[in-house]
C-alpha cells in the first residue's frame, strides 16, 4: 500500500541498504537516494564511528531501521536490554516503522545469530504474535515482520507459510515486510508455487518490500544477497506491486558488494514496475470520493 499505518503513513519509493563500503561515496558525492535501510544492530552501540557516520547520513537522508536479532518466534521472552537500545536508536533515526524477521534464533539465552524457520503451528502463532505486540508496545512504532528464506520444514507444521504469516500479523496487528526473493528461494526449496504465496498475503498490511539476489546450488537455492535480482524474483515483485500498489521497496546487497552506483542502479530497476506516485491533489480527491461513497 502506498501509505498505511504499518509504515507510518509514509510514501517512500526505492531505497538501498546502507553498507560500510559505500560510506565514502555517499558522504562525498551525496547521490540522490530516496531512503536508506540500516541494520539496527550495527548502530546499537554507545558511541564511536558507527554513530558518527549514521548521524552524517541522517543529516541528508531518510533512514528506516531493519533488525536481525529480535527473534519474534523464539520461545524465550524478548530481551529487554535489546529493546531499550533499539528504542534509543529509533529516537535518533526517527524511523517511521521498524522491521525484523518472522523467525526464531535464540533459546534459554543462547543465540544462533541465524534466522531460523518456525514450525507453522498455532502455538507458534500465539507466541510470535505476543512477542511482536510486546515489542510494538515498548517501541511505540509500527512493526513489519519479514518472511525469511528457509531450507527446512517441520513435521509439526499445521498450515502453509503464508497462512502462518497472515495469522501472525492478524494476531499481532502488525505489518508485513514482504521479501519476494525469500519467497522465491523457499518456494524452490520446498516445492510450492511462489505466486500462491504472493496472492495470499494480506496486501493492506504490506508496509515494505525487499528484493535481493540469491545463489543457485544443485539441490537448493540459498539467500546470499550477493547477486543482482534474478528474473523470477522480478516477476514476483511485479505481482506483489499489482496487489499492493506502490510500496516502499528496498534492495539488499550484503556480500561481494559492488560500487554504490551499481547497487543503486539495480535497485532503481524496481521503478519500472511501480505505478507513478499519485500527485497530492489527486490523492486528496480520491480520498474525498471514497469518503463520500
Amino acid at each position: 500500500m502506498p501509505a498505511n499505518r504499518f509504515n507510518g503513513y509514509t510514501d517512500y519509493g526505492v531505497g538501498v541498504g546502507l553498507r560500510i563500503p559505500h560510506y565514502d561515496h555517499i558522504l562525498s558525492r551525496n547521490p540522490t537516494v530516496d531512503w536508506f535501510e540500516i541494520i539496527s544492530e550495527n548502530y546499537m552501540v554507545d558511541g564511536g564511528l558507527p554513530l558518527r557516520m549514521l548521524d552524517r547520513i541522517l543529516e541528508q537522508y531518510r533512514v528506516v531501521q531493519h533488525g536481525v536479532s529480535l527473534y519474534f518466534g523464539s520461545a524465550d521472552r524478548l530481551n529487554r536490554d535489546h529493546l531499550r537500545r533499539l528504542k534509543s536508536l529509533t529516537r535518533r533515526t526517527n524511523t517511521p516503522w521498524l522491521s525484523d524477521h518472522l523467525c526464531w534464533g535464540s533459546v534459554d539465552g543462547t543465540y544462533s545469530h541465524d534466522l531460523l524457520p518456525l514450525p507453522y503451528t498455532w502455538e507458534a502463532v500465539r507466541k510470535t504474535a505476543a512477542n511482536i505486540r510486546e515489542a510494538q508496545d515498548f517501541l511505540e512504532l509500527p512493526i513489519a515482520v519479514e518472511n525469511v528464506s528457509s531450507y527446512a520444514e517441520f513435521h509439526a507444521s499445521e498450515m502453509t507459510e503464508w497462512q502462518f504469516l497472515n495469522e501472525v500479523v492478524e494476531a499481532a496487528d502488525c505489518g508485513i515486510l514482504l521479501d519476494v526473493n525469500n519467497i522465491y528461494v523457499s518456494s524452490w526449496n520446498h516445492g510450492f508455487d511462489p505466486f500462491d504465496y504472493v496472492n495470499a498475503v494480506a496486501p493492506e498490511r504490506v508496509a515494505q518490500i525487499h528484493i535481493a539476489g540469491h545463489s543457485k546450488f544443485e539441490k537448493y537455492r540459498l539467500d546470499t544477497h550477493d547477486h543482482p535480482v534474478l528474473d523470477p524474483v522480478w516477476r514476483l515483485y511485479q505481482r506483489a506491486i499489482a496487489r499492493c500498489g506502490r510500496t516502499a521497496t528496498l534492495l539488499e546487497w550484503d556480500d561481494r558488494i559492488p560500487g554504490f552506483d551499481e547497487v543503486h542502479d539495480e535497485a532503481l530497476k524496481a521503478n519500472q514496475y511501480l505505478p507513478a506516485a499519485i500527485p497530492e491533489s489527486s490523492a486528496a480527491t480520491v480520498e474525498m470520493n471514497h469518503d463520500a461513497a
Partner: peptide, 17 residues
C-alpha cells in the same frame, strides 16, 4: 523434527543451517 524434501533429507536440510 524435520521432514525430507524430494532433493534433500532432513539431516542435509539441517546442515545448510
Amino acid at each position: 523434527y524435520l521432514s525430507d524434501s524430494p532433493r534433500l533429507n532432513a539431516q542435509q536440510r539441517l546442515d545448510i543451517y
